[in-house]
Amino acid sequence: MIQAHSLAKSYGPKRAVDGVTFTVQPGKVTGFLGPNGAGKSTTMRMAMGLDRPTSGTVTVNGKALAEHRAPLREVGALLEAKSVHKSRTARAHLSALAATHGIGRARVDEVIGITGLGAVAGKKVGGFSLGMGQRLGIAAALLGDPQTLILDEPVNGLDPEGVLWVRNLARSLAAEGRTVFLSSHLMSEMAQTADHLIVIGRGSILADAPIGEILAARNRTRTLVRTEQPADLANALAAPGVGVTALDAETLEVLGVDAKTIARRALDHRILIHELTPLQVSLEEAYLELTKDDVEYHSAGTGAVPVAGKQA
């Protein structure tokens, strides 16, 4: 479990992470979604104790990582591909990390096997492809058989088979009851891997909800309705597939019915409506809207945002 509380990090005047509070639960894959530069990596580095928070706290399995007796057994992290000396072999890199905790050669061989690095374990990391570097990073993360895994953009540079492998690995680790926290800047990648999503943009949390809820909200019409008889209107609209949430004494958010139908039902039941606003902005649109100012390369003219993940 990872818990962040009012976690903030500033680099000079730039606020990379702006007071985020969230909990990453065990037993599921939690996606950390946001455009490049949104603060994902910084948040993960703070969880790993590599970066010191400007304010706030972050704990892994209840304590700051440095306070654990066996950090590698608590959390394994893939932070950036090839966090390895280029002239060292993959096996030497893993053996050196394992030695800090007295983890033996058998486990080193085991993670080499799990990640499919057997054929290149004795080769220098400098010659590795990006994909092999990612696999080595994942091998290092698995070394201590940790309860929590932090994977920053784990599918970057992987071929389709590798992408599928990471997805299955993340899902099976979560199925074993572990906490799996993985970041991506692609909505499509998250939709296929994550159970729960935390969306971050410009250092702030935009959404923190189960993926089903987020996808439902995205695919269905949302309408804001103000009326003096919210309970009557809720009854009038009740139907399978329709969700009504009271935002305050006079305001309802209606899911799954369009504005015209709501107006007709209200008329039929003689309920006075004084506001009827279709809410078109879905999470992905909100995400893309935020992304627009942060992406490095805009595609000219169309206004389309290059990171737009196609939703399958």
Partner: peptide, 15 residues
């Protein structure tokens, strides 16, 4: 220079 510090100090966060 190589980034291996990230792996090193993740394993030994006390530094």
């Amino acid at each position: 220079a190589t980034g291996s510090a990230r792996a090193t100090f993740s394993a030994v966060p006390k530094r």
